[in-house]
Simulated assay, not measured.
Amino acid sequence: MTDVPHQPPQLAKANGIELCYEIFGAADAEPLVLIMGLGAQMILWDDEFCQQLAHRGFRVIRFDNRDIGHSTKFAGEKRLTMTELFKQRFLHIPIAAPYRLQDMANDVVGLLDALDIASAHIVGASMGGMIAQEIAILHPERVRTLTSIMSTTGNPRLPYPTREAAAMLMAPPPTTREAYIARFAQTWKVLRVGHFPQDEAKDRERAERSFARGLNPAGVARQLRAVLASGNRKPRLRQIKAPTLVIHGSVDPLVRPAAGKDTVASIPGAKWLLIDGMGHALPMPMWRTIIDAITKHALGTKAG
């Protein structure tokens, strides 16, 4: 599926920084913004995934969050230590961060402004789902529909990640190209939970592409701090007015299924889709289910 209009990556000034973005689909199609998760460049929304969404009638906009890919990099702050994590979890001591999820939400709104888009369908995965929730809370007029995938409310009472998934998150960053490629495959094997030959066959290509665009381990650390410093959104989620769909995998080891259930219970009128056998990833065999759900939610809401 390559016969969709395509605008190659370029930079836009947004919220006082620069964001690298890319567009698939016709200019007059329904605008849909994809927000990726912690430490993930926009290309982890696979090209073909974006093309399939564009074929469904969307103008698909993917972008690098601040501190990742080709968007603006920040400075300062060290990697999160286990001591800080312990204090945050058990002593409820706030973690210092140079920015928070609200700032990242304002980045997305700034990108919409730069593209002269009054409102869009907002789809976020993992940390991207948290950012999407913040957009719907802070800027309700900019959100046509909200889709929160494998994300959470920030409720501290929710189950923690599995030990194996948490270890991948906290592991020191690799320092060489081959080490990064090996870690990439290892990480996604843990997060996908199960055997997905199509994805495993593409892992090296995906890792090489991410490495070639440039890594920023310090930026990933700052993004993690932003997540933890932003606290519990659960009481504020009741403010969301946008039609909301919550998608979660039944075997997610990082953001446990209870977090998705907590999200759907916290947003008035939200719809729930639990995908059996899906972990903390968007495996290729499950694209059809996910894209069908997003399309029905967004365009079905419009039709209604």
Rank of each mutant, 00 (worst) to 15 (best):
G231F: 05
K189C: 00
K241R: 14
H280K: 14
E48D: 15
L111P: 09
L19C: 09
N106C: 02
P156E: 11
R163A: 10
L169N: 14
H139K: 05
G124I: 04
L91F: 12
L80F: 02
G124Y: 05
F49K: 05
P174T: 09
I122W: 12
H92M: 04
D276Y: 02
S148Y: 00
I68F: 07
L274V: 11
H6V: 01
M284G: 00
A221P: 09
A242T: 10
I117H: 07
L112P: 03
R142A: 05
A120C: 08
T263R: 00
N155H: 13
E84I: 12
F63L: 15
W287Q: 02
H248Y: 06
A40F: 03
R288P: 02
V251S: 06
L11E: 06
P156G: 09
V109G: 02
E48C: 03
V246Y: 08
L282M: 15
L215N: 07
T153Q: 06
G214W: 12
G300P: 09
M127R: 06
F63E: 06
A165H: 04
R183W: 11
R209E: 02
R56K: 15
P285Q: 07
F63Y: 15
A242K: 08
L34P: 00
R288N: 09
M170R: 07
H280F: 11
G37L: 05
T153E: 02
H70P: 00
T244A: 09
L274N: 07
E77R: 03
A40Q: 14
H92V: 01
Y180K: 10
A75C: 08
I240G: 05
I61W: 09
N155Y: 11
M170P: 10
V143M: 06
T295F: 00
R233W: 01
P253N: 12
W188V: 00
S126M: 01
G269Q: 14
R225P: 14
H6F: 11
E200Q: 15
L228R: 06
H121E: 04
V109D: 07
M104A: 08
Q186H: 14
Q102A: 09
I290R: 00
R222V: 15
A75S: 15
W272F: 14
T81N: 04
I294R: 03
A54G: 03
A242S: 15
L32A: 09
C50G: 06
P243V: 06
L53V: 08
P268Q: 10
P243T: 07
F74R: 10
F90H: 14
I181F: 06
M170W: 04
I135Q: 01
L11K: 15
G269P: 13
S250W: 13
E205W: 04
D28K: 04
M36P: 00
H280Q: 13
A136D: 06
P197T: 06
K202D: 12
L224N: 12
I294N: 03
D276N: 14
E134S: 07
T81P: 13
W287T: 10
K189M: 00
R56M: 01
A270L: 11
H55C: 07
L245D: 01
L19E: 11
L282C: 11
V251R: 10
E200M: 15
Q102G: 05
A226D: 07
E200R: 12
R206Y: 05
R204Q: 11
Q41G: 04
L228P: 01
K202H: 12
K261N: 11
G39E: 05
E205D: 12
A120D: 08
E48A: 11
R206G: 00
A259R: 00
